[in-house]
Amino acid sequence: MTIPDLGPLWLTLHLATLTTFILLIVGTPIAWWLSVTRWRIKAVVEAVTALPLVLPPTVLGFYMLVFFSPNSTIGGLWVDMTGTQLTFSFVGLVVASVIYSLPFTVQPLQATFETLGRAPMEAAATLRAAPFDAFLTVIVPLAARGFLTAVVLTFAHTIGEFGVVLMVGGNIPGETKVISIAIYEHVETIRYAEAHVLAAGLLAFSFMVLLFVYVMNRRFPLHVGSGA
């Protein structure tokens, strides 16, 4: 049996970890804002963050390619600032993944925050906790399940992404050749043995992650709710 190059595997894990981390920082405030705001603009923001769910990856990938291109305003600005380009680069892939996986972070968090309601924040405020303090010490622990779901979905979804990566990143070993692209390449070149190893590895890994999450969930049930 041929052992395939494991580079794409590490690159994929790197990409997924980084994307998940960035999305927790970016997505949490968006989810919180969506859960508390009474502005009419809320519906617009909700629709925009949900777009990646319904659009074909090719549509998303196409527009990202257009906007990330060094000839475009955004892409050009990036080149001026960093000397690197967003298309066909690892950084570009991270940006694309963040946009593509955004709903998988925002939606579970928003749902959890809405379930918690205003009561915990109000209680914390009357206990002299400033809003950010209250969020970190009350909302985050109470929303632990929501965060777990968001992390798993975001991570898994980034690993499984193919269309957007192909269009924005291409197939550069060590830079943009993630595992899904590598499998595709192996299949295209009729090297099924290598494709099998990578595909089975990904399957086993995904299963283990999900199993871990569900076992943890069962063993340490989080006491969320009013407790009445």
Partner: peptide, 17 residues
């Protein structure tokens, strides 16, 4: 949180975590 007004809620609102 700056008023220094303590509030006892009808439903207690203890933190379950």
């Amino acid at each position: 949180h700056k008023r220094g007004a303590g509030y006892v809620f009808q439903d207690a609102r203890l933190f379950p975590h």
